[in-house]
Design a protein around this nucleic acid. Structure first.
Lengths: 232, 232
DNA sequence: GCAAAAGTGTTGGATCTACACCCATGT
DNA sequence: ACATGGGTGTAGATCCAACACTTTTGC
C-alpha cells in the first residue's frame, strides 16, 4: 500500500469560496457550523479529498453538496499549508472560488448544510485561515474579472448592461461611468441582444442580453480591459 | 494522532519548474533520474511535503537542494490531483515555477541532483504529468510577464535593455520592435541607469540598468503592458 | 409633464505602432 | 570607412475618459 515508505501522508482538504450577486451586493455562501471543531462559528464550505477521488471531482462534489448545482465555474486560488492552520490535525487545504447565480441554487441543499448568503462587506470572522482565503479569493476575482469575461457567471442567463455594471461596481466597490462601461462591454461583442426587455423596471426598460457562448469560449483568454486600473 | 478519523491521508508532493535564461534561449532545469520510479527518464525536481513542514518551507527546501539559492522568486501554479497521476501511489502534487538567474546557481548542487539545463524548445518528454506541468508553467509565465515586471528575476543584477528584450522574445517566441520595447520598459520607471556600460560587446556598448527595488515592490501588482496581445 | 433610468455621441488627451535617423565601437 | 548594434524621435491611428443630450416609462 505505502510504496513511498519514508514519506508522510497528510490530510488534504478543499475549501471553497462561493460568490453570489443579488443585484446589489456581492455575497458569500458561508456555513454556520453545527459540528466540531469550532461548532457555532462561521466557516467556508469544505471537505476532504478522498482516496480514490480526482481533485476536480472532489471540488465538484463539495460544490454540489452545497448548492445542488453542477458545472459551476470555479477556479483554484492556492493551497494553504501552514503546519498549524488546522488545530485538530495537520491538514493542507486547496482553496478555490466559485461563481454562481444566486437565484439558481437549491435553497434546501444550502439549508441542509446550514449555509447562508452573507454580504461580503459584513462578513463575520471565520475559523482557521478562512479569512485569509476569502481575502485572496476577492483579490483573485478582482484580478480576473478585470481582464476576462468572468462576471457573467454571477448573473442570470439573460441580463441587462446596467445589471452587469452594478455587479462590477460591487466587485470593485467603486462607481463606474455608465456610458463608457456600456461601450466597453458591447465592444467585446460577447453579448447578444435577445430582443427582450427587462420588465421589472418602473422606468425605461433595459435590453436583455445573453452571452454569445461560442465567442465567450474562444475569447476567454484574450485580454479585455474591463477595469482600467482600479483594482487590487 | 488521527483526529479526523474517517478521512484518508494522502501523499503530498511538490514539483518545481525552474526557468533560466542564458542570453539566448529559455531553459529548464530538469532531472535525469538515477532513482526509482522511472529511473533513467527525465522529470521535474520535486519532493514530498513533510509532516511538520510548512508548504512554503518545503518549496524553498526543494529549490535550495537543487540550486543552492535562497529567496528565489517562485509562484504556485496549481495542484495536480488525478488519481492515477503517480502510478506508484496516490499522490497529489503542488506545482510551482521558479525564476532564477542561470549563472547564479550552484553548479555542484545541480550536478549532485543530476540536473541539467535543457532548452525549453528541445525538452525531452517527462514522466507522469510533468509535461502538462511545464506547459502550464510556460503559459503562466507568459501571462504574468506580460502584465507584471517578473522578467527581471531571470537576469543578472545589472543588465541591458537589449538583453531584457531578448528574454521577452524568448519567452513569447516572437520578435519585438527594439524602439517600442525600450520605450515601454523605460516608461515604467523601474530601471535605474547604473552609469556603467556592458563591456562584453564588440559594437556600441549598451547601458547597464538595475531594478529600482522599491518601485518594483510597490508597483508589482499594477498592470503594465509589456506584451500587447501576443501571448497565450 | 415630470422624475428616474437607459440608450447613444463627441472630443481632447494619452497611448501604441510603425517607421528612420544618428551614435559608438572594433575591425 | 564600414558593419554592427544601441539610443532616440516622430506621425498617424487607435483607444480611453470625461462629459451632455435624448428616449422611455410610470406616476
Amino acid at each position: 500500500m505505502n510504496r513511498y515508505p519514508h514519506s508522510t501522508r497528510i490530510l488534504v482538504a478543499l475549501d471553497c469560496i462561493v460568490f453570489g450577486f443579488d443585484g446589489e451586493a456581492l455575497k458569500l455562501l458561508l456555513i454556520k457550523r453545527d459540528f466540531e471543531p469550532e461548532k457555532g462559528k462561521w466557516s467556508l464550505m469544505g471537505g476532504f479529498l478522498e482516496a480514490e477521488e480526482d481533485l476536480e471531482v472532489a471540488a465538484n462534489r463539495i460544490l454540489y453538496d452545497l448548492t445542488g448545482l453542477k458545472d459551476i465555474y470555479f477556479e483554484e486560488i492556492k493551497t494553504f499549508g501552514k503546519v498549524g492552520r488546522d488545530p485538530v490535525e495537520r491538514t493542507i487545504s486547496i482553496c478555490f472560488f466559485a461563481l454562481i447565480n444566486i437565484h439558481d441554487h437549491n435553497q434546501d441543499q444550502a439549508k441542509a448544510q446550514n449555509a447562508y448568503w452573507i454580504d461580503l462587506k459584513n462578513r463575520p470572522s471565520l475559523i482557521f485561515d478562512h479569512n485569509q482565503m476569502v481575502d485572496m479569493a476577492l483579490e483573485q476575482l478582482r484580478y480576473k474579472a478585470a481582464l476576462h469575461p468572468i462576471g457573467f457567471e454571477l448573473l442570470p442567463e439573460k441580463f441587462t448592461i446596467p445589471q452587469l455594471q452594478k455587479l462590477y461596481e460591487a466587485i470593485y466597490d467603486t462607481p463606474l461611468d455608465r456610458r463608457n462601461f456600456s461601450r466597453k462591454i458591447l465592444s467585446t461583442k460577447l453579448l447578444i441582444d435577445t430582443g427582450e426587455k427587462n420588465q421589472n423596471s418602473t422606468t425605461k426598460k433595459a435590453i436583455l442580453y445573453q452571452l454569445d457562448k461560442e465567442k465567450y469560449q474562444s475569447q476567454f483568454n484574450a485580454f479585455h480591459n474591463f477595469m482600467s486600473d482600479a483594482m487590487i
